[in-house]
Design a protein around this nucleic acid. Structure first.
Lengths: 330, 330
DNA sequence: TTGTAGGCGTTATCAA
DNA sequence: TTGATAACGCCTACAA
C-alpha cells in the first residue's frame, strides 16, 4: 500500500514527527483507536489494556500533538489572542490576562498576547500566521482592523471600555475638592499607546471640574520616557500659586511627579497634593489613588468572554470596580 | 454520506470560510493558480490578467488565509512563542519583545507571548494548542519542559542568561563603596517569578562585598505586593546604624524603599543611600541605578534568534550592556 | 471493542 | 502558462 511508501519517504525527508499512525502501527491498533485514547473520548469503551498500551507507546515514541492539524480538522484553533497596543501592558492588564488564562485553560484554550501596531503590520497579515478563536482587544482598533477580525471568523471582545475611566477621573477631582483644593494641575501622558484611556480619564476630570464650578485644570503633557518633561510640568504648576493639587493620568506618572517634587525639595501634600489612578504596587506607600477591584473586574470580563466564546452570547461587563484609596499624598 | 452532513452542520454553524477552491471556481482557474497568485510565488509566470482577476476575486469573496491549513501543509508554523514566567514582564523585557517582533515581522514570523506557570499547566499541554517554530524562554524552564519543547520540534532560545545579572549586582556594590559606604542593606524580592534573576543579582552583590572585604549585606526580603514588608525592611536597616546604603533588586523595589523613607521622614542619600537596577522610566528622576543598553542587547538577541531560526546556528549574545547611571540617591 | 475511510485548506509535484 | 492530484496530521461517522 501507499501508506508504507509514504512513511518511508517521510523518514527519509528527516521530518521525524511522530504521528498517530506511528503509534497505531507500533501498538498494533488503528489510528482511530489512538485518537480516541489520546483524547479521552467518551462512549468508545476501549479496553483498559489497549488504552494503557497506546498511551505508553505514545510516550515512548515521544508523540507531541501537532496543533495545526488539529485546528484544521476542527475548523478552528483554541487560541485566544490578546491584542495589546504597543505593549501598553501594566499591572492591571497583566492581572486580567492571568485571570483569563487560568479560566480558559480549564476549557482547553490558551491566551496568547501580541503587541500590535497597525502601521507596522496591518492586522490582516496576521491571519496567515495565527487564526485565533477569539480576539480580545486591549486597546482601540481601527474600523478596518475590526472588520478584518470578523472576516477571519474570529470573535471579538473589546476589553477596552469595560472600565469606566471617565468615572475614575471624576473621582480624582471629587477627592481633591473634598480636601479643599479648587484649582488643579493635570498630568497628561503623551504616549500614543495610552491615548484612548488618557482621553477618557481626562474627560472625566474636565467634566467634574466644570460641574463643580472649578476652573479648567492646567494640563501639562508628560512623557514617561523623558523625565525632563515631568520636571518642566512641575515647574509650570509651581508658577501658578493657585494650583494646590495635581491629578495624574496614572500612578506611574504620579510617582514621577513625586520624584520631581523631591528633586525640588517639595513634599506632598504640603507643597502640592497628588493623586494617581491604578493602585500599582509601587504606589502603595503614600500615594492616594483610585483603585480598580481587579479580581471583580477580571471575573466579570472572564464571564463575558466565556459566554461569547462558548455560547455566542453577549454578556455585558457590569459592576462598580473603582474605589478611592486615601494615602498621605493628599 | 457523512461528508454532506458535516458540511451542512458546518454551514449551519455559520462558518462560511472562503477557501482557495471558492476563489478558483469563481474566477475560472485552478486552485494551484490561486495559491501561486496569493503567495506571489516566483517562477510561475502567470499572466498579469489572471493574477489580477484572482486577487480581485479573493478580495471580493473576503478570503482570509487559514493559518492551521498552511502550517499543516508546511509542517511548521511561523509563530515564535515567548514564554514568560508569571508575566514577570517589565520595561526591559517589553522592549526586547518589541524589537524581536519588528525584526521577525519582516521575515514572516509573529511573536506571541504566553504567561506560563508549570504548576498551573504543564508545558506539554500547550503543544496541542500552539505549535511554535521557536520558543523564546524569558525565564527559567524546568528540565522536563525543555525536553518537551525539543520533542515538539520547536527550537529553543534562552533569553534568560544573556544579561550578566551578577555583574549588575557587583556594579551596585562597587559604586556604593566608591561613595564611601562599607556596610549595606539588600532588598531581595520574594516573588517566585523573579527568583532566578534575583538570585543572580544578589550573588554578585555578595561576591563583590566579600572580595572588597565588606561585611555581608543585611538582607531583607520584600514583597512588592505588600508595602508593609518594605517599611519593615527599612526599619530593620535603620536599627543598624552602620548601614548607610541599600542596594535593591531592581528600580521598582528601590522606589518603594524611597517612598517608605519619605513616609518616615528620611531622605536619600542623607539618611540612607539607595541604588537600583534597570533604569525604568519612573526611576529616571533621582534614582541611581545600573542601566541596560536595551537597544544593543535587543539587537544582539535578535541576531542570535534569527540565526537559530533561519540557519540553525548558535550565535552567542555578546557585549557589555551594563552601565552605571549616577543620580541623586547616592 | 476496534477499524475504515474521507476530508479539513493549503502547497508542491508533475503533467499538459 | 495552467491544472490535477496527492499529501500534511488529525478527527469522527459509520461499519464490522
Amino acid at each position: 500500500m501507499g501508506t508504507d511508501d509514504e512513511q518511508t519517504a517521510q523518514r527519509v525527508r528527516g521530518s521525524h514527527r511522530v504521528t498517530h499512525a506511528d503509534i497505531a502501527r507500533a501498538s498494533g491498533v488503528s489510528r482511530a483507536t489512538v485518537s480516541y485514547v489520546l483524547n479521552n473520548v467518551e462512549g468508545h469503551a476501549i479496553s483498559e489494556k489497549t488504552s494503557a498500551l497506546v498511551r505508553k507507546t505514545a510516550k515512548d515514541l515521544g508523540h507531541v500533538p501537532f496543533a495545526p492539524a488539529r485546528s484544521l480538522r476542527l475548523g478552528r484553533s483554541n487560541i485566544v489572542l490578546a491584542l495589546v497596543k504597543d505593549f501598553s501592558l501594566g499591572y492591571v492588564s497583566n492581572r486580567l490576562l492571568r485571570a483569563l488564562d487560568v479560566a480558559l485553560a480549564e476549557r482547553g484554550y490558551v491566551v496568547l498576547v501580541h503587541e500590535f501596531n497597525e502601521s507596522r503590520r496591518p492586522l490582516a497579515e496576521l491571519w496567515g500566521l495565527v487564526s485565533p478563536a477569539m480576539v480580545a482587544a486591549m486597546g482601540g482598533l481601527s474600523v478596518p482592523s475590526e472588520s478584518a477580525i470578523d472576516d477571519a471568523g474570529s470573535k471579538l471582545f473589546r476589553v477596552h471600555g469595560t472600565i469606566p475611566h471617565a468615572q475614575a477621573g471624576r473621582m480624582q477631582v471629587a477627592h481633591l475638592v473634598e480636601r479643599g483644593h479648587r484649582s488643579i494641575g493635570y498630568a497628561f501622558p503623551t504616549s500614543p499607546a495610552l491615548r484612548l484611556v488618557a482621553d477618557e480619564r481626562f474627560e472625566g476630570v474636565k467634566l467634574e471640574c466644570a460641574e463643580r464650578g472649578l476652573p479648567d485644570p492646567l494640563v501639562c503633557e508628560v512623557d514617561t520616557d523623558d523625565p525632563a518633561t515631568i520636571i518642566r510640568a512641575l515647574d509650570v504648576w509651581r508658577e501658578h500659586p493657585e494650583i494646590t493639587a495635581v491629578a495624574a493620568h496614572n500612578d506611574e506618572v504620579a510617582i514621577m511627579v513625586q520624584s520631581a517634587m523631591a528633586a525640588r525639595g517639595l513634599v506632598a501634600p504640603r507643597d502640592l497634593a497628588l493623586i494617581g489612578i491604578d493602585n500599582i504596587p509601587s504606589a502603595r506607600i503614600g500615594l492616594t489613588t483610585i483603585a480598580t477591584d481587579i479580581d471583580a473586574w477580571a471575573a466579570s470580563v472572564v464571564r463575558s468572554i466565556l459566554a461569547l466564546l462558548e455560547d455566542d452570547e453577549e454578556v455585558p461587563v457590569t459592576g462598580d470596580f473603582l474605589s478611592l484609596i486615601v494615602r498621605s499624598s493628599t
